[in-house]
Design a protein around this nucleic acid. Sequence first.
DNA 1: GTTGAGCGTT
Length: 439
Amino acid sequence: MSQYINVAENEGNEPMEVPSEDDGTLLLTTLSAQFPGACGLKYRNHETGTLRGIRLSDGRLYPPDTDWGRQVYIVVFPKGEKTKENSIHPTEPTHSVKSYKRFERQKCSDLIVLGLPWKSSEEDLRKYFQQFGELLMVQVKKDPKSGQSKGFGFVRFAEYESQVKCMSQRHMIDGRWCDVRIPNSKEGAQQMMNRKVFVGRCTEDMTADDLRQYFSKYGEVVDVFIPKPFRAFAFVSFADPETAQGLCGEDHIIKGASVHISGAAPKASEKYDRRMVPNHGHVAYQGSWGPGRGGNPSHTNSNMGVGGGMGNNLSIGNLGLGALQLNHAMLAAAQAVLSSQTGWGPLGLTHQSGGATTNGDQLVVATTTAAPHSISTSYAPAPMGTSNGAVVTGAGGGNNSFLGWGNQTAEMPPAPHTVATSQVPSWGSMPAKAGSGWN
DNA sequence: GTTGAGCGTT
């Protein structure tokens, strides 16, 4: 039977009543309609004095007993999104503040929602998606004559963080699994968000540290990559895409030499983007989310690492370095190098805690934010958390890369871990998990 | 009136 449940944002706050469904469960959407961003419920067990979590499954919260009773339930928000009363954890500020700034810089994009039930209205969409944050736009595409839904729509969030959260999971909307993606029409724009620049005409005496030091005056440098053996170019990645964009086209004098800066936009990997990524919706940012492809925030000591293996695997040696003056040859080599770097690592998997969350599988990577609201166990987990073969497991990580992701923890195996020709080294080098392969 | 991979009459 339907009943009203007492829910408060925090213990001691004035509760408000939210309605349950006829079967006694409380829809997460109902909850988040009143408490935006809510991802669960808990309550104080007065026998033990401890807090208890409420069971959540398929977007429904289940009463602890036969019904919800008259007690007050407390709303649970994704980690890192404490409400004003809940002071932020003292150890978090550096990371969360920093990453939050990063979010602000990233602009939201329209997102396409695929797989909508025919019956779902824009109202339904809004009600569902507002749990991730403020919505600026909601559309259900319909046939203008019949008014019949075409089964897809668009949403746009106000905050980038909402978008990230939203894209990190699949969505159960009115009884159907739906996918949220960056629309194809927006692909070009992502390119402009690349955080990595190509630095041409480098001289051999320029070390990664030199470049880092030099470019730091324009913004935070998160990665410097200098191919070995020497090939007269380098890649520099900035924390802020705008920094990178701002430098493009310029000539700079470093160590007495004039280097040329341009966008690191390898067409080479472009064609692999979407196709190489399984369409399981657990993968956030599939496709060409510019920054994700490029960033490889751990090559700082790039004088080792990729080193030896590269020449062999990518046959770059055959290009003949006599062509160094030729721009296109340089670019081609650069593209080869780029595509050999682990793409999709860093930003792509950002905070996607959601992405790899609870799947009943052990491939859970860094648990942070949103508890997925409805999870299908029938989907193979996205092979996240791996970068250059290093499996990142467990929560936290605590490394100092952006949000602590995508960083292979600085200790790249000295032995070339054979990137091979795979365009998706993260996968190719997935250490076959004993037993439980996800065939 | 049906359908189920895709990509937006603004």
